[in-house]
């Protein structure tokens, strides 16, 4: 992974993860939202390959928004058709989450050198952290219902970030 050591960018990524907290009450929903958001990001950026160096800079965000909205709607339709139990659990949050996460990550990517590898690495990290929180909340949630409340996700993330930045170098904080 390249240098992810810009503090401002890390904050943007953290905002994207915080949006995903809604889905982290169990591993299943966390994994599905993580995967779906990654797919939206990857397809959007693959299509954006056509425009990124040609379109005027001021219009890039419009293209991003339209493509993200488009892929998000299709993902939601697929969810409704093939994963009804996840739709029952999250409902309208699915498209809301996917769209918000993708746009926030897009802002993060906008300032970086564009590469599909970057996005892949980022997606994997994103899925891992959502699943991590999902597993912890699902396991502890059975004993302490407070873990299933929204604020617990922030506390768990705080601990996870502390552990991660303890393990890795301080510059390589891959949130």
């Amino acid at each position: 992974m390249n240098s992810y050591n810009n503090k401002k960018n890390n904050t943007a990524l953290l905002a994207a993860i915080c949006t995903g907290f809604v889905a982290t009450t169990s591993l299943k929903t966390a994994l599905s939202i993580g995967l779906a958001a990654s797919i939206v990001l990857i397809i959007t950026n693959l299509i954006m390959h056509l425009f990124i160096n040609k379109a005027p800079n001021s219009m890039l965000m419009l293209f991003y928004i339209i493509l993200t909205a488009f892929i998000t709607s299709i993902m939601y339709l697929i969810f409704q058709a093939y994963f009804p139990d996840i739709v029952n659990e999250l409902g309208i949050y699915i498209p809301v989450l996917l769209f918000t996460i993708s746009i926030i990550v897009q802002i993060f990517l906008h300032e970086k050198k564009y590469s599909i590898l970057n996005i892949l690495a980022l997606s994997i990290g994103f899925i891992l952290i959502l699943c991590g929180i999902g597993i912890i909340r699902e396991l502890l949630g059975g004993k302490y219902t407070a873990i299933l409340e929204a604020p617990a996700a922030f506390i768990i993330t705080g601990f996870l970030l502390a552990i991660l930045s303890g393990i890795f170098d301080k510059d390589k904080k891959t949130a």
């Binding site: 339209i66 909205a69 339709l77």
Partner: peptide, 20 residues
Amino acid sequence: IELKWTLILVVLIVICSIIT
């Protein structure tokens, strides 16, 4: 240039809507 890209954007929206 802006006009050209605005048209491309509109076409893109139409294509996306049709696919959806």
